[in-house]
């Protein structure tokens, strides 16, 4: 993963979308919000390291970390290393060192867990859709099945008809 791709992923994680046009705009956005640091001097085509990604994820997910991260990390001393250690402790990322390069699959796995953590912490409006013992069982412990939705489209009978079936989308729901 390049730094540009990682910056784009961080903006999507933080805001749900990336409206920036180029790398410089993304960089200025992230640095102005304190998500990335200019002291890193990362270039667009550099391979992004796990420590930088971990630091940005910690800032987006509002993860304070431990004493070392608070004392030294805020001042820039071992900031990325302590951020990575924090994410390893939270089992959001595999055990790694901060200078290790970040793969696309590893970054996506991290962002997925970060997104779930953000919803849990209420950093964005929750979707309100759940399937758990607390929300989807009646007092007897039986599974609650939602009632049929009205106005449903005809069911496709085969794979060939699958694409054509259904109601065309007008706008994203939710």
């Amino acid at each position: 993963m390049s730094v540009d791709e990682a910056y784009r992923a961080m903006l999507i994680l933080a805001d749900g979308e990336d409206t920036a046009q180029d790398f410089e705009e993304r960089k200025s956005k992230l640095e102005s919000r304190g998500i990335a640091r200019s002291a890193w001097q990362l270039q667009s085509d550099n391979v992004v390291d796990a420590g930088s990604v971990a630091y940005m994820v910690c800032r987006i997910c509002d993860i304070d970390g431990g004493v070392n991260m608070q004392l030294f990390g805020r001042a820039g001393l071992g900031d990325r290393r302590y951020a990575l250690r924090e994410l390893i402790y939270r089992e959001m990322i595999d055990d790694a060192v901060d200078y290790q390069y970040m793969t696309g699959a590893g970054l996506f796995a991290l962002l997925r867990k970060a997104d779930a953590l953000m919803e849990k912490k209420g950093l964005y409006t929750p979707t309100g859709i759940d399937l758990s013992d607390e929300t989807d069982r009646d007092p007897q412990g039986n599974l609650i099945v939602p009632p049929p939705a009205s106005g449903g489209a005809a069911a496709p009978d085969s794979a060939d008809q699958g694409l054509g079936g259904g109601v065309p989308a007008t706008q994203p729901a939710g």
């Binding site: 859709i129 099945v145 694409l163 994203p172």
Partner: peptide, 30 residues
């Protein structure tokens, strides 16, 4: 294409969700 509530999905289709998105499906007949 974006899905909407009430739509039915059958064999041979794939679904993907992005960040901040979820989907709940119910089998019919139930």
């Amino acid at each position: 294409r974006q899905v909407v509530p009430g739509e039915s999905l059958g064999r041979g289709q794939q679904i993907r969700t992005t960040f901040r998105s979820k989907l709940k499906l119910v089998a019919r007949p139930a």
